[in-house]
Design a protein around this nucleic acid. Sequence first.
DNA 1: CTGTTAGCGCATTCAG
DNA 2: CTGAATGCGCTAACAG
Lengths: 336, 336
Amino acid sequence: MKPQPSSKAATLHDVARIAGVSLITASRALSKPELVSDKTIARVQEAVAQTGYLPNLMAGGLKSKRSQMVAGIIPALSVAQFLPTLQTLTETLAQAGYQLILGQTGYDVAREEALINTMISRRPDGLFMTGLVHAAAARARLQQAGIPVVESWDFSAQPVDMLVGFSHHDVGRAIAAFFRAKGWQKVGIASANDPRARQRCEGFEATWGQPVPTALVPAPSGLARGREALGTLLAQCPDLQAVYCSSDQMAQGVLVEAQARGLRVPEDLALCGFGNAEFSAHMVPALSTVHVDGAGIGERAAQMILQRCAGQSVEQPVQDIGFSIIERRSTERAPG
Amino acid sequence: MKPQPSSKAATLHDVARIAGVSLITASRALSKPELVSDKTIARVQEAVAQTGYLPNLMAGGLKSKRSQMVAGIIPALSVAQFLPTLQTLTETLAQAGYQLILGQTGYDVAREEALINTMISRRPDGLFMTGLVHAAAARARLQQAGIPVVESWDFSAQPVDMLVGFSHHDVGRAIAAFFRAKGWQKVGIASANDPRARQRCEGFEATWGQPVPTALVPAPSGLARGREALGTLLAQCPDLQAVYCSSDQMAQGVLVEAQARGLRVPEDLALCGFGNAEFSAHMVPALSTVHVDGAGIGERAAQMILQRCAGQSVEQPVQDIGFSIIERRSTERAPG
DNA sequence: CTGTTAGCGCATTCAG
DNA sequence: CTGAATGCGCTAACAG
């Protein structure tokens, strides 16, 4: 009934003393109960309840070399694209008793490198990256640190360690092929200016075979940037028939701007986004887009890291998770 | 030129040996250089570069009782509302050398409590909560842990420690007063079913003075839920004049559904959201909404935690950051 | 099943 | 300005 004996946090030492057992027995009763008799476990748990003991994971980790933390590095929290991945990653790791430490690079390679060093200083049991590790020094550090690393949302022939992603270049090519199959001649690109979005642009142009009018806007791209971008594109090419947008949020903006200018979608202008956001299927017209299983990336990455932490090897350390074009109303008939 | 002498990570011990100084001198050269001669610092840094040494923050933290980590607890990463707060919090803390450990409650009080215990086990130097701490046991634990705690995005007369937020009840009242001043009679609510959104509903009804048709949808609310909710509301009240939505994302859905049904906004139906999302000002019509300085919450929370960590006291440990209704086109004239 | 011994890597006393 | 000793809280080895 009375509160904790002192103002300081109880240690395992206190628990052991109150339970009348040795330190290590108390430790085992809590973390490896199968090695301890039920009676002892009960007494230890009684002492834990009495003292309000919570283990100090820093101390445990120092000795056991397992921090039960995973570092997660993203460009910025405001990039909606990665949220399902991060949410699933965090949840799956949490179920296994691991927490995520978050770091944001702001798409800056120098910050990415500094962040990786900071993270390694915490001795995480694994590291998750959205995108690839860009700095060579950071790659070397990670390899030397010997922890499981998952790069994601991109593809590389030489990953640092493991990878779950797909080729953005291929996405661009697929969209261009899709546009071409529709018979459209005058097409444009409204894209954020981040490395992966640029790869999609390059893929698009590679398949398209000639330069494509492109409006590049700063990342992260949103509705406002989409409106702006359509303005830019129409100034370059007034008889535009179709636009590929580097995010569904941006496509929403292009749609709004089109409607504001009296252009009908898809009759006058067709639209394809990227990301298959929650809202895309419910827009009017419903938005054609590229689906990527973001939650799946988070889930697989978590599993890969957890397997490695459990000492198992991962069968497929490099997974191409693919993508698919989802055709909806916004590209339903060839305009013009 | 040759790589690290062994496959194991270098320790400060190695650095000290190579630099030809004692352990503690190497430690000071890195963390308190003002106490060490420049010559010694240079030699230590040389050794650091040579070994690729990265400090082990777990070990340092164990001794110094400072983990340089802050725990951040949110309902779910997918709640867009909190992203600016989290982004600013993470950045501001990172500038001061602190990292955020993330935990998601899923709006579940039991998970919240378990999560707080897990977090305390990591001995964070501070804890940030979106919302209030609900479980009494968790409040007690946090108070006993003695770390700075900031609750946010809500208001309470008895915060655990510090708080940056505002009254959701007052938001609801303000919107109801705003709607009343417009002269509208038939109004409805499209709201997510989370605790804070419900408080806004209650505030709205309290000021409105009579029951208000309400469509509650599961949190987090998005565009699809908004469409669904407007359907529900129109079924109850076909001559609806105005709708308050618990998020701008949901308001987007209500707008889409209204347009799909041939209702003009605001001529036939006025709309007010909550959150002042990045896109709201750029919709057509521009969306009236409630602005809350989410980034400001993150910034202030970080400052409060950092001040406490620096041993200073915080002048205003409880800050009402307020809110403001932003009138845009979607509520511009009284319909009907 | 339980206990003893010995550190994990570093920073905080105290001394010079 | 530099150093030697001590221990943060816990767990991996080994013993019994």
